[in-house]
Design a protein around this nucleic acid. Structure first.
Lengths: 110, 110
DNA sequence: TAGACATTTAGCTAAGTTGTTAAATACTCG
DNA sequence: CGAGTATTTAACAACTTAGCTAAATGTCTA
């Protein structure tokens, strides 16, 4: 059930173009909230809320560094959240290669 | 440009859990609007609008057969629409296998 | 502690989404 | 044509979302 929730949260988060762009921007590495806001034409509070949504969906992580708050992309989480749906709907076209994510210790059944 | 629009439309369409479930259900083959509606607890008009959104996003196709309207999943389109974003954001975890519509191989082993 | 900077939270408005029911459209059959 | 079935369109209420500005919070430095 957590998984379904994750999926729902991730897809809702991805519905907004600004949030998708933020994720793309984070591909280049950590960015402070202000650095992210500077890349868009909308206000810092708006970006802050977008970051909150992304964090809530588990798609980014945050860490404080002094004055600023640095955000980082959680690629493995993103892949995990939307992966189930993708392999259910178009497994021929998209292949999940879950590299990290999952401690590899437990047996995960089939 | 059209591509970005497609991407936006696809992600917006995928934001709703009912629409995602419809896509999953269509994995089993064509379904009439009424057959789809019967699988959900919401009214036929609501389902009809969801189908309209999916069709608008290019994620399903429709064809009339007599009385009924049959919907089919457009897997390749789905993969294409969200594929660019996925390979931009988590290329390590997700592999795009953009098939040119391979005629189903009987044996799918290597 | 005060001041400056970075970020978030609060409160508001406008616009969009999802569900409903009732009515319209489209097709088949007698 | 008229009835029956399948589906969509129209009109509306409830809720959510995304933007803004102003104010609060958190952290550094002096």
């Amino acid at each position: 059930m957590t998984e379904a929730q994750d999926e729902a949260g991730a897809f809702r988060a991805l519905a907004d173009p600004t949030r998708r762009q933020i994720l793309e921007d984070l591909r280049g590495g950590e960015l402070a909230a202000g650095e992210i806001a500077a890349r868009f034409a909308i206000s810092a509070p708006s970006i802050s809320r977008h970051l909150g949504v992304l964090k809530g969906a588990g798609l980014v992580t945050e860490r404080r560094e002094g004055n600023r708050i640095l955000y980082a992309l959680a690629e493995d989480r993103l892949a995990a959240c939307i992966g189930r749906f993708l392999s259910a709907v178009c497994p021929e076209q998209i292949v999940l290669r879950h590299t990290k994510w999952r401690p590899r210790a437990q047996n995960e059944g089939s």
